[in-house]
Simulated assay, not measured.
Amino acid sequence: MASLSTHVLDTSAGRPAEGVRVSLEAADGTLLAAGVTDADGRVGDLAADLPPGEHRIRFGTGAWFEARGVAAFYPEVVVAFTVGEDEHYHVPLLLNPFGYSTYRGS
């Protein structure tokens, strides 16, 4: 089985995004795992036994910005990805109130 971690960085502030709610779902919407980013903006062990197939990570970005008094355009960010091999997958999110980007990290 594969493992999964994530990291959220607030590019508008130039620092990690601590306290972002993160959930991991199977392609059919079944909740597989959930967590909250730590002081470094990470959820280091979101999944330790992720099966092959399509999955989604859902980031609670709107609530996170709202808690900080910042108006944001996206109420959430959903990243769909495919797991194939038994290896570690890392999905970072670079975030600001009006945009985001992601990539497969290491």
Score class of each variant (00 low, 15 high):
Met1Leu: 10
Met1Cys: 03
Met1Asn: 06
Ser3Cys: 03
Ser3Thr: 04
Ser5Ala: 01
Ser5Thr: 01
His7Glu: 07
Val8Glu: 01
Leu9Ala: 01
Leu9Glu: 00
Leu9Thr: 02
Leu9Arg: 04
Asp10Val: 02
Thr11Met: 15
Ala13Asn: 05
Pro16Ser: 05
Pro16Gln: 10
Ala17Thr: 11
Ala17Trp: 04
Glu18Leu: 00
Glu18Lys: 04
Gly19Ser: 03
Arg21Lys: 11
Arg21Tyr: 09
Val22Phe: 00
Val22Asp: 02
Val22Thr: 03
Ser23Leu: 15
Leu24Val: 02
Glu25Met: 08
Glu25Trp: 09
Glu25Ile: 01
Ala26Thr: 15
Ala26Val: 12
Gly29Thr: 08
Gly29Asp: 12
Leu31Ala: 14
Leu31Gln: 14
Leu32Lys: 12
Leu32Gln: 09
Gly35Asn: 00
Val36Gly: 06
Val36Leu: 11
Asp38Cys: 12
Asp38Gly: 07
Asp38Pro: 09
Asp40Cys: 13
Asp40Ser: 13
Gly41Pro: 15
Val43Met: 12
Val43Ile: 08
Leu46Lys: 09
Leu46Asn: 09
Ala47Arg: 12
Ala47Val: 14
Ala48Lys: 09
Ala48Pro: 07
Asp49Tyr: 08
Asp49Leu: 13
Leu50Ile: 08
Leu50Arg: 03
Leu50Cys: 09
Pro51Leu: 11
Pro51Cys: 13
Gly53Thr: 10
Gly53Arg: 05
His55Gly: 12
His55Arg: 13
Arg56Asn: 08
Arg58Tyr: 09
Arg58Asp: 09
Arg58Thr: 10
Gly60Phe: 13
Gly60Asn: 07
Gly60Lys: 14
Thr61Ala: 11
Thr61Gln: 07
Ala63Glu: 15
Ala63Asn: 07
Trp64Gln: 14
Phe65Lys: 04
Phe65Pro: 05
Glu66Pro: 13
Gly69Ala: 09
Gly69Ile: 10
Val70Arg: 05
Ala71Thr: 09
Ala72Leu: 01
Ala72His: 02
Phe73Trp: 06
Phe73Ser: 15
Tyr74Arg: 08
Tyr74Trp: 10
Pro75Tyr: 07
Val77Arg: 00
Val78Met: 14
Val78Asp: 09
Val78Asn: 14
Val79Pro: 07
Ala80Met: 10
Phe81Met: 07
Thr82Ile: 12
Thr82Tyr: 13
Thr82Lys: 12
Thr82Met: 14
Val83Gln: 02
Val83Tyr: 01
Glu85Arg: 05
Glu85His: 02
Glu85Ser: 02
Glu85Met: 07
Glu85Trp: 01
Glu87Asp: 12
His88Glu: 13
Tyr89Asp: 01
Tyr89Pro: 00
Tyr89Ala: 00
His90Gly: 06
Val91Trp: 01
Pro92Leu: 06
Pro92Ile: 06
Pro92Cys: 07
Leu93Ile: 04
Leu93Phe: 06
Leu94Pro: 01
Leu94Gln: 06
Leu95Met: 03
Pro97Val: 00
Pro97Lys: 04
Phe98Met: 03
Gly99Lys: 00
Tyr100Gln: 05
Tyr100Trp: 04
Ser101Asn: 02
Thr102Phe: 04
Thr102Ser: 00
Thr102Tyr: 03
Tyr103Asp: 05
Tyr103Lys: 08
Tyr103Asn: 04
Tyr103Glu: 04
Arg104Val: 13
Gly105Asn: 07
Ser106Val: 08
Ser106Pro: 11
